[in-house]
């Protein structure tokens, strides 16, 4: 591992200044579960790591009438241990509950999951289907980017030189809505998704018809994919096996996987169809309460 300096600033401005000074040779340190692995493997040669866990905004976790705000350094367990979040954002809890094991969940969080930009990031699809927004600070000011646009390729993001993810803002879900996420792995725990699907649905007040739907896919493209056509196909339709199967088929169309050690193109596309159907049904169940 290349010897790097450790800095632990207490403000966003100080963190941005260090990141800006070092460019690609500095990285923010949240849980370290990706950073230290990559540094040790010399994927990244770093001169400095910027521990962001002393910056209050990046450790803030709040849920209220205006939605959910997740600081970039908040670890997974704080999200799933929060009963209000578990009740209102079960799809997000589905994701953070399966990232690594308990040890990893003590440190890793959604901010790091987003910035690591793995196509398989289990935390990302639930955020996409909730229309979450990433708040970014940088040398030339603050900006916001939709989570669906945050990753630009495997391990690549929209973050420019000196830019730091500050928080993820999730709008408060509409009434009669529900969300769910799952992945397929060949074991029960501690693995990387062969394919993953997140779904958000909003039903009408009868609970029998879809008012809106968002579907996002993991591990079947260079980034997590928002399958817009699949989600849009449900709008205004009744909740039944036909409409759900049609949406699942469109999600399969949107998947652009590769064959690798974890699975083949055909298996992954098949998984997307099956998991999409299941997750729509689970999201509907949750929407109906």
């Amino acid at each position: 591992m290349h010897p790097f300096a450790y800095v632990a600033p207490s403000t966003v401005a100080e963190a941005v200044a260090v990141l800006d000074e070092h460019g690609d040779r500095a990285r923010p340190l949240a849980g370290g579960t990706d950073l230290l692995v990559k540094a040790r493997a010399n994927v990244w040669e770093l001169d400095a790591v910027v521990d962001i866990k002393n910056i209050p905004e990046l450790m803030n976790l709040s849920v209220g009438s205006d939605g959910l705000s997740i600081g970039a350094g908040v670890p997974c367990y704080q999200v799933y241990d929060n009963s209000e979040i578990a009740a209102e954002y079960p799809g997000i809890v589905d994701g953070v509950s399966i990232i690594g094991g308990i040890q990893v969940q003590s440190r890793a969080g959604l901010g790091g999951n987003l910035c690591n930009a793995a196509p398989s990031g289990d935390g990302i699809c639930p955020l996409i289907v909730h229309s979450a927004v990433a708040k970014i600070s940088g040398p030339s000011g603050d900006r916001e980017v939709a989570v669906e646009d945050f990753a630009t390729g495997p391990s690549r993001t929209v973050l420019g030189k000196g830019e730091l993810l500050v928080s993820i803002e999730v709008p408060k879900p509409a009434a009669n809505s529900g969300a769910a996420y799952t992945r397929f792995i060949p074991r029960n725990e501690m693995d990387i998704a062969v394919a993953g699907v997140g779904v958000f649905v909003q039903l009408d007040s009868s609970g029998q018809n879809f008012e809106s739907a968002q579907i996002a896919l993991a591990s079947v493209g260079p980034t997590p994919i928002l399958a817009s056509a699949a989600g849009d196909s449900l709008v205004g339709k009744p909740v039944n096996d036909e409409t759900i199967a049609a949406a699942a088929a469109l999600a399969k169309e949107a998947a652009t996987p590769i064959t690798d050690m974890r699975g083949t193109v055909d298996q992954r596309k098949q998984l997307v169809e099956v998991l999409t159907g299941r997750m729509i049904k689970q999201a509907v169940e949750r929407a109906r309460g």
């Binding site: 450790y6 340190l29 230290l36 692995v37 690594g100 094991g101 040890q103 990893v104 003590s106």
Partner: peptide, 22 residues
């Protein structure tokens, strides 16, 4: 790399992989 847990310790009451903590 955070897979095996052999290095598990607790920090402020939470278990972590000490190989992935500075």
């Amino acid at each position: 790399d955070g897979n095996c847990g052999a290095c598990t310790v607790s920090v402020d009451g939470r278990i972590v992989d000490s190989c992935l903590v500075l």
